[in-house]
Amino acid sequence: MRPDHYKLMYEFVKWAGEQSHIAGIALVGPCADDENEEDSNLSFLLISDKKTKTLEAILHQFPFEPIEQATKEEWGLLTSFRIEYASGMEVEYGVAGEEWLRLPLDQEMGDTVMKGFKVIWDREELFVQIIRYMETHQFE
């Protein structure tokens, strides 16, 4: 992982830990692999009981760099912001409620977590189903 990714991740997790509506954070995709030097974007998966509040807080309260562009995408129960910061770094923040975790993983999300998944912070062991999915599909 690139040094600027570590800096953002540290600052984001520190900030998110102070938000009572955020229950868990994971890195998803190639960025979740510490050994991966690939120039992949950071992709966070956040679990929140107040999805809209969490998305707005990321846009307006997370004190990182100025935002150059933010694109919102809806994926059923998961909503994501793809944010490009002033430095050119791109980060995806996917936010879903706990009900999203109870759904079976679709093919696209399953493929994404198989490229990398790392729980960064979790209040209630929310990501157990995703970890089990990875364990049962690792040799396919």
Rank of each mutant, 00 (worst) to 15 (best):
Q107P: 00
Y93A: 03
V119F: 02
V91H: 00
K53V: 11
L103K: 11
Q129M: 04
Q61S: 08
G110C: 08
K53E: 15
M1C: 09
F139N: 11
R102Q: 14
L27M: 10
M1P: 12
F62N: 05
E99V: 04
H60F: 14
R132C: 03
H5V: 03
E65W: 01
M89W: 00
I130Y: 12
F81I: 14
L8G: 03
G110H: 08
E125T: 07
L126N: 15
F62C: 07
L101D: 08
L46A: 13
W15F: 15
E125Y: 14
Q107N: 08
F62I: 04
A57N: 13
L46M: 15
E135S: 10
K115D: 11
L27Q: 05
C31N: 11
R2N: 15
E99F: 01
L59N: 05
S48I: 05
T79W: 03
Y10C: 05
E98Y: 09
Q69P: 00
E38A: 13
A23F: 07
Y85V: 02
I47W: 10
I67H: 06
A86G: 00
E84N: 07
L101F: 09
T54Q: 01
L59H: 03
P30D: 12
P3S: 10
E140Q: 09
S43P: 04
G110A: 11
S80M: 06
F62Y: 11
E38M: 09
D122H: 05
D122N: 07
R132S: 08
K7E: 13
I83F: 01
H5Y: 11
W121T: 05
L77V: 02
D33H: 04
K14N: 05
S48H: 07
E35D: 10
M134N: 10
E11T: 06
E140G: 04
E98Q: 14
F44T: 15
K7R: 08
E73W: 02
K118E: 10
C31T: 14
L8V: 03
E11D: 09
E92G: 01
E18Q: 15
E84C: 12
L105P: 03
D33A: 06
H60C: 03
K118F: 01
A16K: 08
Y93D: 02
L78I: 15
G29T: 12
E35G: 13
M1N: 09
F117C: 04
H5M: 12
E108G: 00
G76I: 14
Q69R: 14
K51F: 01
E56A: 12
P3H: 05
D34F: 05
E35P: 00
L8I: 03
E68T: 10
E65A: 01
Y6M: 08
E140Y: 04
L126K: 11
D49G: 13
E99K: 06
F44Q: 09
H60N: 15
F62T: 07
Y85N: 08
I131S: 12
F117H: 04
S87F: 01
I83V: 15
H60P: 00
G88V: 07
K118D: 06
G29A: 05
E98I: 06
Q19C: 14
F139V: 10
D33F: 01
E37P: 02
V13T: 12
M109I: 13
S20A: 14
L105F: 09
F139Q: 09
A16E: 10
V28I: 15
A16C: 12
K51M: 12
A96N: 03
G17W: 06
Q107G: 02
